[in-house]
Design a protein around this nucleic acid. Structure first.
Lengths: 243, 243
DNA sequence: GGCCGTCGTCACCGTTCGGTAAGGCGGCCT
DNA sequence: AGGCCGCCTTACCGAACGGTGACGACGGCC
């Protein structure tokens, strides 16, 4: 999917800056959704009815279409069917009202990828869009390469590179880096890291500390001034992108 | 399958008309999936339970098996194990429910190539099938010669050459080399190799170690400094091309 | 029936890895 | 400004891992 829109067809590990088309007739809902999606880092396009939504979807080749079911001119289901008939690659997230169960099932059969039931929180919609992007991302599978700036981690090969040189990471270091890099911008406590990376439910938190330090020594230009793995005082660590 | 809309893009290489076997007990899911895969250009075969799925997989030699984990008669994991034990070279995509994390990991170790978490959209599954085909299907036939530098393996003839001289490889050594050489740059655990090359899901990991060692003795200029089959500490092995 | 080749297992050894402990530093709060 | 707590840093040691050589079982072939 995602025939590269515009310039770079980002293989989004970061899952931002996707092109999202919102087709919704209620202007208030539309604007709120647009703002939230925009804040989440996506490029947003808007349409207020079925025909113009379809037109925009075909022309703009968005990554995701957020599609209201009840639309003037052309129902969401019809837009959905039309998009799939044209072999559009965009993922589709439907907005359904309570009690539209039948339409929801029909929508999924017609090729929608997910749905959100009204009334919904904008935040939930953003999450769904992110989830759909992740699931249908062009480079997918359990082993998609993780890239951040000049740092590149290849889970399938179990290799990591900083620029052109390969890093000599130990098993733990590699797993830790891959874990953090796959979830940039999110903070983890040491206990969470022990649980997720080590698979332990108990254990000395300093273990994490030491491993983070060893990692920093290998991936940070200046380990005393870490730019990638940030310390969150009193909490834990967070991977900050090159941004 | 969704051959590149409008020329460029090529979301997928033209891996259409693959033979896909769907093993799933829920008739509704099965039919929807079948229709989508069919629309995507694949030849679809269906099975509703474990035993008949296994039978169909062995008889029909599909390119991809889409395998539900929860099956009547024989679980997806057991089917997976049986397929690998028979050295089937079909790719396997598991359908797992949320919360079946353990089974998923086990499945990947047993030789599954990818998984999709329920609930999933049919479109997503089609993407995964395409992705798996791209990753696993050798561009040429399964019997195409495998070449890396001055090393040449001919699966059809079951012969291997280093430069001009033919190597005297045993059956296991040949299978192991052919397997790795067909998937250069990808890391495998010993368990995965046991599953994929030996067709076991138990057994001593040192078996792999020893065979790798024997192989190295025949294909590496200096077995103590292997350049082709790299050791990944704490993990397994990886074939590194001459590049 | 004997011989040879292959394969799986095992024990040994050198190396690497990873968790822990201890001391010093620096930020945070009062 | 001072004290305290949390983080960084270093060193160390036990455990785990992979490489190596050897052995014995099995099966095919002469």
């Amino acid at each position: 999917m995602t025939t590269a829109v515009g310039g770079r067809g980002r293989a989004y590990p970061d899952l931002v800056n996707a092109h999202v088309l919102v087709v919704e007739d209620d202007a208030t809902v539309r604007d709120v959704v647009a703002r939230y999606l925009g804040d989440a880092g996506h490029r947003v396009e808007l349409a207020g009815d079925g025909p113009s939504g379809l037109e925009a979807a075909v022309r703009g080749e968005p990554d995701v279409v957020v599609l209201d079911l009840m639309l003037p001119g052309l129902s969401g289901l019809e837009v959905c069917r039309a998009l799939r008939a044209r072999r559009t690659n965009a993922a589709i997230v439907m907005l359904t009202a309570l009690g539209e169960e039948d339409d929801r099932v029909l929508g999924l059969e017609l090729g929608a990828d997910d749905y959100v039931t009204k009334p919904f929180s904008p935040r939930e919609l953003v999450l769904r869009v992110g989830s759909v992007l992740r699931r249908t991302a062009p480079v997918d599978g359990p082993d998609a390469p993780l890239v951040d700036g000049d740092l590149r981690v290849e889970p399938a090969a179990r290799r990591a590179f900083l620029g052109a040189v390969e890093l000599a990471l130990t098993t733990r270091e590699f797993d830790l880096l891959a874990f953090l890099l796959a979830r940039p911008g999110r903070a983890f406590t040491r206990a969470e890291l022990l649980a997720q990376v080590w698979g332990w439910d108990f254990g000395d938190h300093s273990t994490v500390t030491v491993h983070v330090r060893r990692l920093r020594e290998k991936i940070e230009a200046d380990p005393t001034q870490p730019r990638r793995i940030a310390t969150i005082w009193g909490t834990g660590y967070r991977y900050d992108g090159a941004a």
